[in-house]
C-alpha cells in the first residue's frame, strides 16, 4: 500500500507552494480515476496527494467571445451537461462524454485526461483540433503551451515539479467551423479507445474547406496532429474522395502497437475509417445542418 499525505489547498497559489515544496513524490488528485488505480499495488512508497478540487477556478468553465476558459478539473458530467459549450465545441464535448461510465464521468475531467497523458486519451485529439492552449502555473509564473507540446510521450508531459495545469484555453472557432470526435471500442461503452480521431473543419460560403485540423489517438505514443490529412480536406468540398484521402493519410501517419486492445493492422485501418467518418460529421455540423 502506498502511504499518502493528503492536502487540499483552496487556491492555485497555495497549491503551487505545496507542490514546489514537496519532499516526496507528488501527485495531483483531480478525479482520481486514473491516479487511484495507478497507486494500487505500490508497496512501501509514499506520495503527496494534492487535491485541487477545492480551488474554485479549477472547477469552472467560462465561454465567451474569445473562446472557452476551462478549469481543468471540472468533472466530465458537469462539462458535458453544458449546452452552451456543446454548441460551440461538439467534438470536444463528445470526447469528454466518452470517458468511462456515468460514475467515472462524475469524477474524471478534461484536465485530468490531458495530464494523465495516455496515448488513448479521448479528449487530447479533440483539444488538439481546437488548438487548445495549456496554461501552466508555477513558482516562476505562468507559461502557455499547445496541447501538442504539452504531451511528450506515453504518460508523460512537459510539467515540471511545482507546476500545475491551471487552465485550458480554446479559441473561439471561426465562422462555419465545427469539430467531431469518434473512437473505436469493441463494446458500446466502458472501453479504452482502440483508435480515435478528431477533426475540425472550416468552410467558406461556397462550402469549400478553408482550414482543417485532424488529430488521431491511440495509434502512436501520443496523439498526433496529421497535417497530410488536413491538407487532403483543405480546398475540397469534403466530398467522399477528399474524406477517403484524409482517412488514408491518417492511416499512413499512424504508428500503432499490437496489444490487448488491438493489432497494428487493425488500428491503422480503423483510424482511417474514424478520420473519414469524423470529418463527415464535422462537415455536416459546419454546414449548419
Amino acid at each position: 500500500m502506498v502511504s499518502v499525505v493528503y492536502k487540499a489547498p483552496d487556491s492555485i497559489q497555495a497549491a503551487i507552494s505545496i507542490l514546489s515544496e514537496a519532499e516526496i513524490a507528488t501527485k495531483i488528485l483531480a478525479g482520481g480515476t486514473d491516479l487511484l488505480i495507478q497507486m494500487q499495488g505500490l508497496v512501501n512508497e509514499s506520495r503527496l496527494f494534492v487535491d485541487i478540487k477545492k480551488i474554485p477556478e479549477m472547477m469552472q468553465a467560462t465561454l465567451g467571445d474569445q473562446g472557452l476558459d476551462l478549469g481543468p478539473s471540472m468533472c466530465c458530467a458537469e462539462f458535458t451537461a453544458r449546452e452552451d459549450i456543446r454548441a460551440v465545441y461538439p467534438g470536444l464535448v463528445e470526447a469528454a462524454f466518452l470517458i468511462g461510465s456515468t460514475q467515472v464521468q462524475g469524477r474524471a475531467s478534461v484536465g485530468g485526461n490531458l495530464c494523465n497523458s495516455s496515448p488513448a486519451a479521448d479528449t487530447i485529439p479533440a483539444l488538439m483540433v481546437n488548438a487548445a492552449i495549456c496554461v501552466i502555473a508555477g513558482v516562476k509564473g505562468e507559461r502557455s503551451v499547445s496541447v501538442e507540446e504539452f504531451v511528450t510521450g506515453v504518460g508523460t508531459n512537459c510539467m515540471e515539479k511545482g507546476e500545475l495545469l491551471k487552465l485550458i484555453q480554446l479559441p473561439r472557432p471561426a465562422k462555419n467551423t465545427s469539430d467531431a470526435y469518434l473512437r473505436f471500442i469493441p463494446r458500446t461503452e466502458m472501453d479504452i479507445a482502440v483508435a480515435g480521431a478528431a477533426v475540425s473543419v472550416t468552410l467558406d460560403d461556397e462550402g469549400v474547406c478553408t482550414a482543417a485540423r485532424v488529430s488521431i489517438g491511440a495509434v502512436a505514443p501520443t496523439a498526433l496532429l496529421v497535417q497530410e490529412a488536413a491538407d487532403a480536406l483543405i480546398g475540397t468540398k469534403l466530398d467522399d474522395k477528399a474524406l477517403q484521402a484524409a482517412g488514408d493519410a491518417a492511416s499512413a501517419a499512424a504508428s500503432p502497437i499490437t496489444d490487448r486492445r488491438g493489432t497494428v493492422e487493425y488500428r491503422r485501418h480503423v483510424v482511417g475509417v474514424l478520420t473519414k467518418r469524423a470529418a463527415q460529421i464535422a462537415a455536416t455540423r459546419a454546414r449548419g445542418n
Binding site: 499518502v4 480515476t33 478540487k53 468511462g100 456515468t102 460514475q103 467515472v104 462524475g106
Partner: peptide
C-alpha cells in the same frame, strides 16, 4: 473490481454518481 469498471460500489457524493472505490475517504470531508 476496485477499479471503477463494475459499478457495484456506486454511491453519490454531493449528488453526483461515482464509484466509491475511486474516491478517497478523506475526500468525504
Amino acid at each position: 473490481c476496485g477499479s471503477g469498471d463494475c459499478g457495484a460500489c456506486s454511491v453519490t457524493v454531493n449528488g453526483r454518481l461515482v464509484c466509491s472505490c475511486l474516491v478517497l475517504g478523506v475526500e468525504a470531508q
